[in-house]
Design a protein around this nucleic acid. Structure first.
Lengths: 179, 179
DNA sequence: ACCTGAACACCGTTCAAGT
DNA sequence: ACCTGAACACCGTTCAAGT
């Protein structure tokens, strides 16, 4: 059932995921989904939770130590699963209204934040990590929406562009002074 | 009419803006809005366009030269108009399907990008600007969704936290080497 | 844990006919 | 540039009664 919802969201956008369409795909009656989820929003919350778990795994598998690899993996996840990413971070869901969702989110990017923090001096670690994560997240979001013109990317493909922008993270970490 | 739509979006979320509710607020019949907009999505596109114009103005009014002030203004705009910001950057609208919208978006953040670019050496300007913009944008988005725990913010209020993270932008610019 | 089938209040959108 | 009023296909959600 959740798998069917997953397929739906990959093809269509979040708004296209309706309870009734979900039932059709699963070849069950229009109200059968309510045996599994109290309402539509809970379906979305479950998909978001699944997304956070996958993002967390993708980050851990990408270069055990190298923060740059993790940053690149974060952006790659967003570009490969645009609708899922949007569901997770696009404000579609208020995280606090779904039990445990916020914790799952934290766990997902905790690996990224820790990696970034390790680049900086201990006393500057938290701000550095916050800045690095912001950079990576914003980069993903702006790329998704197509806000970087070809001119800005300068003929580079996405992957190369991402790596070049990510190099800024290293600069931040190296130069960061304890507060 | 557009003003009524603006009010609606401030209070409710984007999904709560329905054509019929819009008509009710404007005290016109349920199909009167179609005299002004071809469909619901065009209403959203108009609101987004208006948002880009306001963001552009806010950026220009915030410190003519100082890129840090502009960055802070960007984040402030997002936090003060969360639903509008989400409409503009949350993937609700595909920018390319609405004539001129992408151009209006570019014009809005062009002032920010130029300010950031001026911090770096000419040959590193574009990447630096892209990194800085990504950082500011990601910071706004993550703050909006409440992803920075009190622990991370370390007791700082939002404004102070933003300024501290933004200081990373200066580090990037200062250290950036031409490609 | 599903089904059928009906129902309710709500959508977006499109008519026809009127001022 | 609006109106009334009807209509269509679609929602989310909730029943009642059945297997």
């Amino acid at each position: 059932m959740l798998a069917a919802a997953g397929e739906l969201i990959e093809k269509q956008d979040v708004e296209g995921l309706t309870v009734r369409e979900l039932a059709r795909r699963a070849k069950v009656s229009h109200n059968a989904p309510y045996r599994h989820f109290p309402d539509r929003e809970s379906v979305l919350a479950a998909l978001a939770a699944e997304g956070f778990a996958r993002l967390g795994k993708a980050l851990e598998e990408a270069g055990k130590r190298d923060p740059m690899e993790r940053g690149a993996a974060y952006v790659r996840f967003a570009l490969e699963h645009p609708q899922r990413f949007r569901l997770m971070f696009g404000g579609v869901l208020r995280l606090d209204t779904h039990a445990g969702l916020r914790e799952q989110a934290s766990r997902a990017y905790e690996g990224l934040v820790r990696a970034f923090a390790s680049l900086a001096e201990p006393r500057a670690a938290e701000i550095t990590a916050a800045a690095a994560w912001s950079l990576v997240h914003g980069l993903a979001q702006l790329l998704l929406d197509g806000h970087f013109a070809r001119a800005t990317r300068g003929g580079r493909d996405n992957e190369a562009f991402v790596r070049e922008v990510l190099s800024a993270v290293r600069l931040v970490a190296r130069s960061a002074q304890p507060a």
